[in-house]
């Protein structure tokens, strides 16, 4: 009885989480323009999507922006955690709170404040600032993952490498980097998703005539929603799932090898 109840409980949570997404994906394959029943399978919205250059350009912008953001975040976060260990506890605490702050500031306010800053120094909106804004809000996610990995890494591995005669650079390349590489991939992926998904920062800082996918979706809803949006959303979900699976495999196998020490 207890078991059945807990199963129903889990099922309800899963339904709550995923039914909206499933409906969205399903309606992308429905012929009706107004997402209405009865369901009639059709690929017409996907066909429309391929021809919709505006939407595709926006998607391309979003991808490029998210990739650049992800890479920059991983590089910054890696340098951060490498230096982080040599700080005194007091400075460390300060750095930790400051670097995590963007997570707790609403993106709306973040975007607005960046816009005001640019205006105050008489600069124009540009892709550069959009990217800068995205890095600010995505960095904490990369940091979080990398810091967790670094904390669980056996510090004596690096000392061991040094004792065997390796220079600090060799130690980094052959010991530290392989240990944190999975976290770099995972952290980069997280930052990528945050950037890809972001609306407020892009909205405030995007120069005229350029748009990202979230902005394009938002404006197309204003001018009449078509299941094309469902189709593009489904594609994005598909890509996310692939990325997630790949990350999971990379993380999983390396986690197993990390667990090796002390294991029987």
């Amino acid at each position: 009885m207890k078991k059945a109840l807990s199963r129903i409980y889990v099922l309800l949570i899963l339904l709550y989480l995923y039914v909206p997404i499933l409906v969205l994906m399903l309606m992308g394959f429905n012929q009706s323009r107004y997402n209405s029943m009865p369901f009639k399978f059709s690929l017409q919205w996907y066909q429309a999507l391929i021809k919709d250059t505006k939407l595709i350009m926006a998607a391309r912008n979003s991808f490029l922006l998210a990739i650049v953001t992800g890479i920059i975040c991983v590089i910054l976060a890696t340098f951060f955690i490498l230096g982080h260990r040599f700080l005194s506890d007091k400075v460390k605490g300060l750095f930790d709170s400051v670097s995590m702050m963007p997570m707790s500031i609403p993106w709306l306010i973040m975007g607005l404040s960046l816009l005001l800053l640019i205006r105050a120094v008489n600069l124009d909106k540009s892709m550069f600032f959009v990217g800068a804004g995205h890095v600010v809000i995505s960095l904490p996610y990369s940091l979080l993952v990398l810091k967790a990995r670094m904390a669980s890494m056996d510090q004596s591995l690096e000392e061991m490498s040094a004792s065997l005669g390796a220079t600090p650079f060799t130690t980094f390349r052959r010991v530290t980097l392989p240990a944190i590489a999975p976290a770099m991939v995972a952290g980069g992926f997280l930052s990528f998703m945050i950037s890809f998904d972001n609306f407020p920062i892009s909205y405030f800082l995007m120069p005229n005539g350029v748009s990202t996918l979230p902005i394009e979706i938002q404006s197309s809803i204003k001018f009449g929603f078509t299941p094309e949006i469902n189709a593009v959303s489904t594609v994005i979900i598909g890509i996310s799932l692939i990325c997630l699976t790949v990350t999971g495999i990379i993380m999983g196998s390396s986690l197993k090898s990390m667990m090796g020490k002390g294991g029987k």
Binding site: D154, S156, L157, E159, M160, S161, A162, S163, L164, G165, A166, T167, P168, R174, V175, P178, A179, S254, S257, M258, G260, K261, G262
Partner: peptide, 20 residues
């Protein structure tokens, strides 16, 4: 003399074998 120039052999309690 830095650690990597001292020519020492070290064994830690955790062994610190390179897992990869």
């Amino acid at each position: 003399v830095p650690v990597n120039k001292r020519n020492i052999g070290m064994v830690f309690q955790s062994y610190a074998l390179f897992p990869h």
